[in-house]
């Protein structure tokens, strides 16, 4: 038996693996050096048990705040009051990629209490973006190691930009997806979601963040402490990503609203698609902008 290999295993160090038994192929928490260098952090985080637990906690907290408000619909079948939308933004600054997955899973769990639908697939990825974008945008617009809780006009403006970038892509993805499935016109969800997300992100999230961020930092549970192996990509690449994200999501939002409300009939769209209720015209017009925004998000 290769005792050297066994003793090197982290579970063996903690005494989990009995003497004489074989070491599993992969450690539960891979040491930083064992992680593939080129893996994206959204994949990499699943190798770290603490990050998995943080994504579970984010999901459970998000769902626990969403579910009680399912009974207070603003427009039945469309949306409800969602104070829980503050959780992904708060957790994004704290737990990074774990918050992205947590908000995606949490939203899906929330949907389970109010009925699931085909649009929830888009809701899953939209919430993934909603939890992923704030901390990534923050690393671009803020100075290194700048805390998001400082009450200065500059910090607040950067915070609002990060929250708005996340809210807009979230709204675009759900509006586009539900339009693609011909469930709801783009102009309904594309606007309601931005409003709902921004209300929670501006009214609630800063208060929560101000109370929780310093404590999490002291407890060394920030994602930068738990996953030091995450390396930021080169700044030019991130800037290009940021420009693509903003350009793509703003274009998607404008085009989606104008086409679905019948105010713009793009010349490039075939005439057969340019008829009310414009679901195909919206799909054709918005899709390229969504693709650009998603590529930009992944380049951040």
């Amino acid at each position: 038996m290769n005792t050297e290999k066994l003793s090197a295993h982290p579970m063996a160090i903690r005494g989990v693996i009995p003497q004489g038994s074989r070491a599993p192929h992969r450690p539960a928490t891979a040491p930083p050096s064992a992680a593939p260098r080129r893996a994206h952090e959204l994949r990499l985080m699943w190798r770290n048990t603490r990050m998995v637990v943080l994504s579970v906690l984010t999901a459970a907290l998000y769902a626990a705040v969403l579910v009680p408000f399912k009974v207070v619909p603003l427009i039945p079948g469309v949306t409800e009051l969602r104070p829980g939308n503050a959780i992904p933004v708060v957790c994004s600054f704290l737990f990074g990629p774990a918050a992205a997955w947590g908000s995606a899973i949490g939203n899906m769990i929330g949907d389970f209490f109010g009925g699931v639908g085909p649009g929830d697939v888009f809701g899953f990825f939209a919430n993934l973006a909603y939890g992923y974008i704030p901390y990534k945008v923050w690393t671009i617009v803020a100075a290194p190691d700048q805390s998001p809780v400082a009450l200065t006009p500059g910090t607040l403006a950067r915070y609002v930009l990060a929250a708005l970038a996340a809210s807009m892509l979230c709204a675009d993805l759900v509006g586009w997806g539900d339009n693609l499935l011909a469930l709801r016109p783009f102009w309904v969800l594309g606007n309601i979601i931005i409003m709902n997300n921004m209300v929670a992100a501006i009214v609630l999230a800063p208060l929560l963040l101000a109370a929780i961020y310093p404590r999490v930092r002291r407890a060394h549970l920030l994602f930068t402490d738990l996953m030091p192996e995450i390396e930021a990509s080169a700044r030019p690449r991130r800037l290009v990503g940021f420009a693509m994200l903003l350009g793509g999501e703003v274009t998607a939002w404008l085009a989606g609203n104008l086409v679905s409300a019948g105010y713009w009939r793009p010349a490039l769209v075939p005439a057969a698609f340019n008829v009310a209720p414009y679901t195909r015209a919206v799909a054709l017009t918005v899709s390229p902008a969504i693709v650009i925004a998603i590529i930009g998000m992944l380049l951040l």
Binding site: M11, R14, V16, P24, H25, R26, P27, A28, T29, R47, T49, R50, V52, V53, L54, V56, L57, L221
Partner: peptide, 16 residues
Amino acid sequence: VNNMAMALEARGFGAG
């Protein structure tokens, strides 16, 4: 967080 992570690892979570 820490207790849950340890409990999961003790049960071989992600052991491959």
